[in-house]
Amino acid sequence: MSRGQTETIVSRKEGHSATLASRKYKKKSAFLESWNRLRTNPGAMFGLIVIILMVLLMVYSFMFITEEDVMAINSANRFKPPSAAHPFGTDSMGRDLFMRTVYGTRYSLAVGFFSVAFGLVVGVFFGTLAGYFGGWVEEIIMRVSDVMASIPGMLLGMVIVAVLGPSFLNLLIAIGVSNISGFIRMSRASILSVKGSEFVEAARAIGMSEFRIAFSQVLPNSVSPLIVTATARIATSVLAAAGLSFIGFGVPVPLPEWGALISDGRNYLGRAPHLTLFPGIFIMLTTFACSLLGDGLRDALDPKLKQ
């Protein structure tokens, strides 16, 4: 008798009493199922690979590129077109654009990740409170969220940076704040959809506190739309950060944030178009990858939504 057959018989013997033991296994398989769906989606895989490459580039830049490398002025080397020594060419001060662009990964990736994480944590906290508790708590939170959603993100970003001054942290705050209200709405809506489930009643029956039910029972069961939105928001946040930096409301010059690099390049459009071209490709690749992955995750986590 082969080993597989033995296992089958053993598990059959245990029969239905094994449901408790197999719960852990089932949970894992839900994840595996989603992963398998994601894996067969070429677009999502492409996105994932690009994101991993970007992260590797960022790690590389932390390890091997110093601030001096990207700041040192070399006037003999100005406006060199792309070549083997300088794959992306050099800028108006003779600095290597490839190094600067790679060094800039940290800003865009960090803005994308942390501004969304900030919006997610704050938004989900209040959204869960609103969705789970309802009543006046919900009224207040949702009205505040309405007001926040009524301020255009770009304007709010400009105002926050104007008040706090251009710096990386302030750019992050500006974009993070504009991410909050979307997550409040999302999490409230998904909390509402699972709030009436039986497992919530069960949790209440065993005497769990309402606050704990909201965050340990209801929230984890409504997490997949949040993952999808978060991935998509990373893309828009990277774009917003680049836009703000481009008009001078982001990372202060001469730090090589991608939007700032493009802003520098626009002064030499006729003479050195590569200065504008390459950082833009990086922005586009990053947002493109995040959008693809976001779409793929949506299909993988909730096959019902797939059209």
């Binding site: 893309a235 774009l239 680049a242 836009g243 481009f246 939007g259 493009i262 390049g265 626009r266 459009l269 006729g270 178009p273 504008t276 071209l277 833009g280 922005i283 586009m284 690749l285 990053t286 947002t287 493109f288 959008s291 693809l292 779409d295």
Partner: peptide, 22 residues
């Protein structure tokens, strides 16, 4: 559409400037 959504409009604007204006 994904390319359109990922392309920063200011960057596209500058590319157009490079081609059609310069």
């Amino acid at each position: 559409t994904l390319i359109g959504l990922s392309m920063p409009s200011f960057w596209l604007g500058l590319l157009l400037l490079i081609w059609f204006s310069h």
